[in-house]
């Protein structure tokens, strides 16, 4: 098969997996324990790192833009700049990259290992649909977890920006001024904008990682290859979709 055929075949199979996952969402209530377990797993894997990186990204944003704003005497706008950057772009993208790297890779490795060691075949022989049993709980867990993680990262990132803005002598904007400006410039539609992105990125990460895992054939080496493939493909799709979602939101006057 040439690469064009492979591209269309892969795209078709990913869309089919997405549709089947959506179809099996009707069984979500009966599988709530599995979904909850996956949400906890995502939280365990991401919350500490997410706190650390968002604190420093918020700090860097303030550090980079604060002194320049101060030169023009408009440093009190730093809260709005950090706030908007985080809710609309950095929060959803950084959270998704983190989840793809830490959770998507684990999903691809787990499902890849199950494929290689015939556990997926064992499920089929027991008349247990692997998409309902394995993919749907991860799909729903990602859709629930990513927006929550984005809110968590937004709050910590804002705080990181506030901390640097107040401590750094070149900026010197107190917490109260920073947060007042932030609340004036960031409104609910901006937050919603980031959450829409996060939800779509959650769908991408879960479906791509599960697809790559389920398609794994061979042995341990192929499991490693699948993990790399899932993470790289997720990163690319997150960034590509980020552009198109932003464009669409601007067109719909939601940005």
């Amino acid at each position: 098969m040439n690469s064009v055929t492979v591209f269309f075949q892969t795209t078709g199979e990913i869309i089919k997996l997405l549709m089947e996952s959506i179809f099996w969402c009707k069984e979500a209530l009966g599988n709530r324990e599995k979904i909850f377990k996956q949400v906890v797993e995502i939280g365990n894997r991401t919350l500490p790192v997410a706190a650390l990186i968002s604190l420093f990204i918020g700090g860097v944003l303030a550090l980079q833009s604060g002194p320049t704003l101060a030169q023009f005497g408009i440093e009190e706008n730093i809260g709005g700049i950090v706030g908007l950057s985080f809710v609309k772009e950095l929060g959803p993208v950084m959270a998704s990259v983190l989840v793809a790297g830490r959770v998507g890779s684990a999903m691809a490795a787990e499902l890849g290992s199950m494929s290689v060691y015939q556990e997926i075949d064992a499920l089929k022989t027991m008349d247990i649909n692997p998409i309902r049993f394995l993919v749907m709980p991860r799909f729903i867990a990602c859709i629930i977890s990513l927006p929550l993680l984005v809110i968590y990262m937004d709050v910590i990132g804002w705080f990181g920006g506030a901390l640097v803005s107040s401590v750094n002598p070149d900026i010197h904007v107190p917490f109260s001024v920073y947060y007042r400006n932030l609340s004036e410039l960031v409104d609910f539609s901006d937050v919603l904008n980031g959450l829409v992105k996060a939800t779509i990125f959650g769908i991408i990460i879960s479906i791509v990682s599960c697809y790559v895992g389920l398609k794994t054939r061979g042995g341990p080496r192929e499991i490693g290859t699948s993990v790399t493939k899932a993470v790289v493909l997720s990163f690319i799709l997150i960034l590509v979709f980020d552009y198109f979602i932003t464009r669409l939101l601007i067109l719909l006057n939601l940005d």
Binding site: M114, Q118, E119, D121, A122, T125, M126, D127
Partner: peptide, 19 residues
């Protein structure tokens, strides 16, 4: 066939779920 009969298979690798 699957509605009327149950089939089970024991795989060479055992295929137990490790988790």
């Amino acid at each position: 066939v699957r509605k009327k009969h149950r089939f089970a298979m024991v795989f060479q690798s055992s295929a137990l779920f490790n988790s």
